[in-house]
């Protein structure tokens, strides 16, 4: 049984339909990448899984149990944490407070705590009393990842980790992904940077216009197939 799965998942923003029957799954211990151009529906898919967008009950399952109509706080309590697009740090909170708030709804013993987060991203310990939003983009991304890890999630949803970051910073951020996986979390990474996604993922889904257009293991997908699935066959 898949750890997390979506079945025929649809999502709307008012009258606009953003997802059209998306089927995907995440196995325990796996890292799955979701790639696609701007507007493909990747973030909507993440928000639907995390409970920010409420869906039909059966459209999302966790350990086979339907969670599609659960709210974000309830889904987080079941061990699904999210690093949202644009980091979304809390401006009123310091770096350390941003990290601490990450475990508000789920306090479990596990690998991740303040000390291990500071080991993963040592710069955060130096900046722990600064306002979260006073940090550079890369450091803010580290805080956002650390904040999500503080709940020792079973599943980590990472939305656009590399967005707006310099290549050297992206490399530093992605170096943390294997360590997070090693500590026991299964991961879904949403990425526009295909190269980064291919490096860390066990499986890849490509999205276009709200639909899954391609899926498979990274080494089984040709450049042409990815190009067609990413931009459309006619592009």
């Amino acid at each position: 049984m898949a750890l997390l799965a979506t079945q025929n998942l649809t999502a709307h923003y008012g009258d606009f339909q953003a997802l059209f029957g998306v089927d995907m799954m995440l196995e325990d211990g796996e890292t799955v990448a979701i790639i696609g151009a701007n507007g493909a529906g990747k973030t909507t898919l993440m928000r639907s899984i995390a409970g920010v967008l409420i869906n039909g009950q059966e459209s999302v399952t966790l350990d086979g149990a339907p969670i599609g109509d659960a709210t974000a706080d309830a889904i987080m309590a079941q061990g699904v944490a999210m690093v949202p697009e644009g980091r979304k740090l809390f401006p009123s909170l310091s770096v350390e407070e941003n990290l601490l708030i990450g475990s508000y709804g789920r306090k479990t013993d596990g690998h991740w705590n303040l000390a291990t987060i500071y080991d993963l991203f040592p710069i955060l310990k130096e900046r722990r009393n600064n306002p979260g939003t006073a940090l550079s983009g890369g450091q803010q991304q580290m805080v956002a990842i650390g904040r999500a890890l503080m709940s020792n999630p079973r599943i980590l949803l990472c939305d656009e980790l590399s967005l707006g970051l310099a290549p050297v910073v992206i490399r530093d951020i992605y170096q943390a992904v294997p360590k997070i996986k090693e500590a026991g979390a299964s991961i879904i990474v949403v990425e526009q940077d295909i190269g980064q996604a291919m490096k860390v993922a066990d499986r890849v889904y490509c999205m276009m216009e709200g639909r899954i257009t391609l899926s498979g293991k990274p080494d089984s997908l040709s450049r042409e197939a990815i190009h067609d699935a990413y931009f459309g066959a006619a592009a």
């Binding site: 974000a72 706080d73 949202p84 809390f90």
Partner: peptide
């Protein structure tokens, strides 16, 4: 206090706060 952090986080951004398990 943790409640105070939740107050401030919810005041900043209620949607992101709900991703932290805050109601």
């Amino acid at each position: 206090t943790e409640l105070g952090r939740a107050f401030r986080a919810t005041s900043d951004d209620a949607t992101t706060a709900s991703l932290m398990g805050i109601k």
